[in-house]
Amino acid sequence: MLSPTTVIREEDFRRIQAAVDKLVRSAYAKVVFLVDKAGQLIAAGGDVDHLDTTSLASLTAGNIAATGGIAKLLRENEFTTQFHEGKNAHIHIQVVYNRVILVVIFDAKSSLGLVRLRVRKTSEELGQVFEQLSQRPLSPRDGAPFGELTDEDIDNLFND
């Protein structure tokens, strides 16, 4: 069977966004974003206005998938942390709850040590959110309209 749909409800979203925003401040990060392993952007904080977060989300998930493949070949479960150092920008990538990916982009205003420390704390908070979230699949009580979709609704999607 197919895996269940991931549903982010208001309360979950508030907690996730708050954790992301807090991490931006506490780690002196430029940007923080959270992605699921299929490459969907869940939340972002910091200076994201001029950033293609959709592409970043997809490439980060691809990166984690690739290193996960390497880990498997080495009989490791997963490489949960990655760090890439650039000239001006650095990127810290952390797998959380084996399900989502927490990405921190930072520059010389911060340091790897500080980022690692703050990410650890945020990972714990986010892990709790996603643990609870995974126990609540999409239900008729969510008020999402997909149960009543008609052929016409779907046809309309491609009209433009």
Binding site: L2, P4, T5, R9, E10, E11, D12, F13, R14, Q132, R136, P137, L138, S139, P140, R141, D142, G143, A144, F146, G147, E148, L149, D151, D153, I154, L157, F158
Partner: peptide, 27 residues
């Protein structure tokens, strides 16, 4: 394929669990 994905979603929502615990939807 988009149509099939939406039909799958429709099926999932219509057959989804209705006895989930309260307090989670945030609505």
């Amino acid at each position: 394929v988009a149509r099939l994905v939406f039909l799958e979603l429709k099926k999932e929502q219509n057959t989804g669990p209705s006895s989930e615990p309260d307090g989670g939807s945030g609505r």
